[in-house]
Simulated scan of single mutants.
Amino acid sequence: MTPALRTERLEFLPYRPEHEDVFVALLRDEEVCRWMGQDLVPEPQIREVFRAILTDIYPQRRFDVWGLWLAGAYVGHAEVKPTGNVDGHELVTALAPAYWGHGLGGEAVRGLLRHAADNLGLREAYGMVGAENTASLAMCRRLGFRHVRDVVGDDGSVTKLLVIPTTHPGGAAGAEGAAGAEGGVRAAAVEDPV
């Protein structure tokens, strides 16, 4: 079962049915979708995804998924899940634009790294960040991610595949003060533009 986690400011809580509307609002935000590298999809599809988290992902323990909360307010989404890009696990974070620029993206990623090391026994984790997402790429460098390779999409878009040891001093164990822009980004330890 996905455990509740805590960092200095954030609570990572497994979703409950009453969280559906905030989840939908996050994934219907055009800026969040842009930085996550996904198209804006119709609301009914997002509701189906949310319900699948509750009825499929959690019961079958497929991977860990959380809502991110700051002082009782929903601020974003996080996951640690197997990735199809390499043999390993991928970190996913997405923050609502109102919470970008406060260091929460880096804090969320460090929390995911600690969970990956302490609870899942992972030695490394991956992330994918769009090549144009300079703020997220800068945050990943500060945390200690290194570039593995570029992944080119059918549309010609470039995504950077990154890796970090889960016990890296800038990742799981330290760098609590890493600042920068934040926001929704797909798969990985990233903070988005302000």
Rank of each mutant, 00 (worst) to 15 (best):
L120F: 15
A78S: 07
G72R: 02
A135K: 03
G72K: 06
D155M: 04
A173P: 11
D87W: 13
G76E: 02
V75H: 00
G184D: 01
G177Q: 11
Y126P: 06
A173D: 15
G72C: 07
V158F: 11
V65S: 00
S157E: 07
G180D: 08
T83F: 13
L91A: 10
G170V: 10
V129R: 06
V158L: 06
D192I: 01
T93G: 10
T159E: 09
L95W: 09
A117K: 14
A96S: 04
A98Y: 02
L122D: 15
A181Y: 02
A135E: 09
A117S: 14
R114D: 15
R123V: 07
V65D: 05
L70M: 02
M128A: 08
G183W: 00
E107F: 03
Y99W: 04
R110I: 10
H147T: 03
T83H: 02
A189T: 13
A71P: 11
C140P: 00
T83D: 03
H168G: 15
T167Y: 13
V151E: 05
A173Q: 15
T93N: 10
L112D: 12
V92N: 03
S136Q: 06
L70T: 08
R186G: 01
F145D: 07
G121H: 08
A73F: 10
G184Y: 03
